[in-house]
Amino acid sequence: MTYTFYKHVSGKNGYQLVLPTGADFPSETTAAEWVQTAVKEEKEVAKIVKDEIAQRGYRLTKVTVSFTESEGAIPPAQR
């Protein structure tokens, strides 16, 4: 099984939609509102994502954050 990842066409709101490849879009939206960004094998997709898709048929998240917004939240890398 594969999963298809999409981002909203506006690009600014940071919404990501994940569907099983070939599945219909949820009734609340249309394919025209989304741009495909990736197709991933089942082993590449986190269990939490797969579990939500099994329950709801899709996973919708807001994923946008900038490094400026996260300042102080991400510890510096150890060298």
Rank of each mutant, 00 (worst) to 15 (best):
M1S: 07
T2A: 00
Y3E: 09
T4C: 02
F5L: 11
K7R: 01
H8K: 13
H8E: 14
H8S: 10
V9N: 09
G11W: 05
K12F: 12
K12G: 03
N13S: 15
G14P: 02
G14D: 02
Y15E: 09
Y15I: 01
Q16T: 10
L17K: 06
V18C: 13
L19H: 04
L19N: 05
L19I: 09
P20R: 12
T21G: 03
T21C: 01
G22L: 01
G22C: 04
G22P: 04
A23R: 00
D24T: 00
D24L: 00
F25K: 02
E28T: 13
E28H: 15
T29M: 00
A31G: 10
A31Y: 03
A32T: 08
A32I: 02
A32Q: 13
A32S: 13
W34A: 03
W34K: 06
T37H: 01
T37Y: 01
T37R: 11
A38V: 06
K40H: 09
E41V: 10
E41S: 14
E41N: 14
E42W: 01
E42C: 09
E42Q: 11
K43C: 00
K43E: 06
K43D: 04
E44S: 14
E44H: 08
E44F: 06
V45M: 11
A46Q: 13
I48F: 08
V49A: 07
K50M: 14
D51M: 13
D51V: 13
D51W: 04
D51N: 15
D51Y: 07
D51Q: 13
E52F: 04
Q55C: 07
Q55I: 08
Q55H: 11
R56Y: 10
Y58W: 12
Y58M: 06
R59D: 11
R59E: 10
L60I: 10
T61S: 11
V63Q: 12
V63T: 15
V63F: 06
T64S: 10
T64D: 09
S66H: 02
F67Y: 15
F67R: 14
F67K: 11
T68H: 04
T68L: 08
E69F: 03
S70D: 11
E71P: 01
E71L: 15
A73G: 15
A73R: 13
I74R: 12
P75F: 04
P75Q: 15
A77R: 15
R79C: 04
